[in-house]
Amino acid sequence: ATNIVGKVKWYNSTKNAGFIEQDNGGKDVFVHKSAVDAAGLHSLEEGQDVIFDLEEKQGKAYAVNLRIK
């Protein structure tokens, strides 16, 4: 899926990971530091509006192509 709108639920820069809550009510999506880095960002803030694509690896959904809304 592409161009999904959501809000950062939480992001821990020590653990280099967090979750994004989908505005469409879907399951929360894992976001890794690699996606944050690829977006040219240093970190994510709780409640921040984002747009992202979903990629599945080994049955788990990940946020990729992250951008700030």
Rank of each mutant, 00 (worst) to 15 (best):
V29H: 02
H42A: 12
I4T: 04
D37H: 14
V36G: 01
L66V: 08
D23S: 15
L44E: 01
A35Q: 09
N16H: 13
A61E: 11
E46T: 15
I4Q: 10
F30P: 06
V31M: 05
E46G: 12
G59Q: 05
F52T: 01
G6L: 02
A61Y: 15
I20M: 03
K69H: 11
Q22H: 08
S43M: 11
D49I: 15
L54F: 05
V8Q: 00
N16D: 07
K7N: 04
S13M: 11
G25Q: 06
I20V: 05
D49T: 15
A35T: 09
E21M: 14
G25N: 08
F52P: 00
N24I: 08
A61G: 08
Y62H: 09
S13L: 11
V8N: 01
N12Y: 07
E46A: 15
L54M: 11
G47E: 03
F52V: 02
D49K: 15
E46N: 12
L44G: 01
K57F: 13
D23C: 15
I68Y: 07
I68G: 04
Y11T: 05
S43I: 11
Y62W: 12
G18R: 01
Y62T: 08
H42W: 11
D53G: 02
K7G: 01
E55R: 12
D37L: 15
K57R: 13
Q58W: 14
K60P: 03
S13G: 10
S34N: 10
K33S: 09
G40V: 03
V36S: 02
I68V: 12
V29D: 00
D49N: 12
T2S: 10
N24Y: 08
V31W: 02
K9H: 05
N12E: 06
D37R: 14
G26E: 09
A38Q: 09
G40T: 04
N3G: 10
Y11N: 02
V36A: 03
A38Y: 07
F19D: 01
F19R: 07
L54W: 05
G18E: 00
Q58K: 12
R67G: 02
A1S: 11
K60M: 10
Q58G: 14
Y11I: 07
N16C: 13
Q48R: 05
G47R: 05
L41T: 03
G26H: 09
N24S: 10
K9Q: 02
E21C: 14
N16E: 11
V31G: 01
G6A: 03
A35P: 01
G59N: 08
D37T: 14
K27R: 12
K15N: 08
F52S: 00
V31R: 00
L54G: 00
V64F: 05
G40R: 07
F30S: 03
V64M: 06
G40C: 09
F19P: 00
I4H: 07
N3D: 11
V50I: 13
A17M: 15
L41K: 04
V36D: 01
A1C: 12
N12L: 08
